[in-house]
């Protein structure tokens, strides 16, 4: 975890309301896929926590969706904009427990951190498969780049305009050794029920600080209270307690 400056090197729309931002700066604090950065925006009091899509050397990319004023500001940022960022936040995914044929399940923006995870798993010699779920064809992103890694990738859309009609859980293959999941909570709950192996789930929350100080994003788990920003965002299947 470090406070640093990233410079915007690219910022383009890749799906409906979804943008990919390329950043340039020190990424040495990103030590695992599934970690996030927390970006300060002018005129907005709280930082915006955004998961890392890919990071290596001086290059880091994030994928974000315009959902309010802050992300709208981000979507208009030009090349060369300097951003005050806390980098290397959160625990990230643990690939050491994945077995030989891990499965990645990404719903909507939850597909964003899956690319770096897939890169790591394939580099470790594992045969990776994935299912990405979106509402509609206009929302689909990240599929080709995942396939370019050699990941067997299925797509599901709720309205059937791309891939199979249905949800991420409708595309789960017969066999896999472990599951990694990121997406809206209802989707992750369904995944949790569907998978027959162990797994890791990446959560989202409204955060105050993003580095464990304010307890604004605490949740109950089997192993006690955890801060999504600091002890997560990735929780193991065994420790999750669903509330509500």
């Amino acid at each position: 975890m470090v406070k640093t400056v990233y410079t915007v090197a690219g910022n383009e729309r890749i799906a409906r309301d979804v943008y990919k931002m390329e950043l340039c700066g020190d990424t040495s604090m990103i030590t695992a896929p599934g970690q996030f950065i927390n970006i300060a925006l002018g005129g907005r009091y709280l930082r915006r926590p955004i998961s890392v899509h890919d990071a290596s050397g001086d290059a880091l990319t994030i994928i974000y969706k315009v959902v309010g004023g802050g992300t709208e500001d981000m979507s208009r940022m030009a090349k060369g904009t300097r951003l005050d960022v806390l980098s290397g936040l959160g625990n990230g995914f643990d690939t050491s427990v994945s077995g030989d044929t891990p499965l990645l399940l990404g719903g909507g923006l939850g597909a964003a951190p899956m690319y770096m995870l897939a890169k790591k798993l394939t580099a470790e010699g594992k045969r990776v498969s994935a299912v990405y779920g979106f509402a509609s064809a206009d929302d689909v992103f990240g599929v080709d780049e995942l396939r370019s890694l050699g990941v067997d990738t299925a797509v599901a859309t709720v309205d059937g305009t791309a891939g199979v009609r249905g949800f991420v859980t409708d595309g789960v293959p017969e066999t896999y050794t472990y599951a990694y999941s990121c997406g809206p909570e209802p989707m992750m709950k369904a995944v949790y029920k569907k998978i027959k192996t162990g797994g890791q789930f990446s959560f989202e929350a409204r955060m105050g600080c993003g580095f464990g100080a304010c307890l604004g994003c605490s949740c109950r788990t089997v192993t006690g209270y955890k801060r999504i920003c600091r002890d997560g965002p990735v929780l193991t299947k065994e420790e999750i307690l669903w509330e509500g």
């Binding site: 105050g208 307890l215 604004g216 605490s218 209270y225």
Partner: peptide, 23 residues
Amino acid sequence: RFGNPLPRIAECTAGMINSVGLQ
């Protein structure tokens, strides 16, 4: 004390609201 349910944080103009609840 666990404190209050989530969300506990809201952004405001030049500030924020917290509802941690003495966790």
